[in-house]
Nucleic acid binder design. Structure first.
Length: 225
DNA sequence: AGCTGTGTTGAA
DNA sequence: TCAACACAGCTG
């Protein structure tokens, strides 16, 4: 259970603002607050299990939550274990501070073990639909080990980051025409290329367009800082 | 001592 | 296949 996990990119698009947020390694995370449970109720519709016993919401006697995720089991101390079964064996995926993390661990393991049409806890999103491509780089054992040691999510986040940078670069490389596009600003007209060559500082470029544009700036003869 | 993960069992 | 439960054994 050791990692330097920083961001968690899997799953939850019901987050209002973005698709990534700060996390801690498995079993090292802060307690989740109530809005976490709102998300879980939504997901329970997707993962439609236990719909019958709606009165189980009043979990009065013990630490077992009313919201059940597939492959997630409560631990004595309030933590959550994740597990998946394959060929008559339980594969333990680790323990987590929140049900949601454990449920995400299950989804990632299920994707590798059972494929992308397996039943999962969270729906597919723009982010996690790249997950099969990410997983194809690794063996099943490697994926499971990453899930267990907490490095899976940060590595997947790196994968997504690199992917989006490549897309940015492709846009610039293949976008010569758009560089020559004329922009009208007041009485003045200039091309996008002129903007690159004359108007922007490296920091401007970095802020507005990110790393890919910084490379473009350097290719155009800009000076790196 | 606290926690993790395995052993086991019964339900689906 | 799956989760509930108990607890052995590991770790800090």
């Amino acid at each position: 259970m050791v990692s330097n996990a920083k961001i968690y990119v899997n799953g939850d698009t019901s987050d209002s603002n973005n698709s990534s947020y700060t996390v801690f390694p498995p079993c090292k995370r802060m307690k989740h607050d109530d809005d976490d449970h709102h998300h879980q109720r939504q997901h329970q519709q997707y993962h439609n299990r236990n719909n019958n016993n709606s009165n189980s919401n009043n979990n009065n006697n013990n630490n077992v939550s009313s919201v059940k995720f597939k492959g997630v089991v409560p631990q004595q101390n309030g933590h959550w274990g994740a597990q998946i079964y394959a060929n008559h064996q339980r594969i333990w995926l680790g323990t987590f501070k929140s049900e949601k993390e454990a449920a995400m661990a299950y989804d990632s393991a299920a994707l590798k073990i059972r494929g992308d049409d397996s039943q999962r806890n969270f729906p597919w999103t723009d982010n996690n639909n790249q997950e099969p491509n990410f997983q194809n780089q690794f063996t099943k054992e490697a994926i499971l080990n990453m899930i267990r040691d907490g490095t899976y999510q940060p590595k997947f986040a790196d994968f997504l980051r690199i992917q989006s940078q490549r897309e940015d670069q492709n846009y610039i490389d293949g976008g010569t025409a758009s560089l020559n596009q004329i922009i009208v600003h007041g009485d003045e007209q200039f091309s996008c290329r002129q903007l690159f060559q004359k108007e922007l500082t490296p920091s401007d470029v970095g802020i507005v367009f990110g790393e890919a544009a910084r490379v473009m700036y350097l290719q155009e003869g800009g000076i790196d800082l």
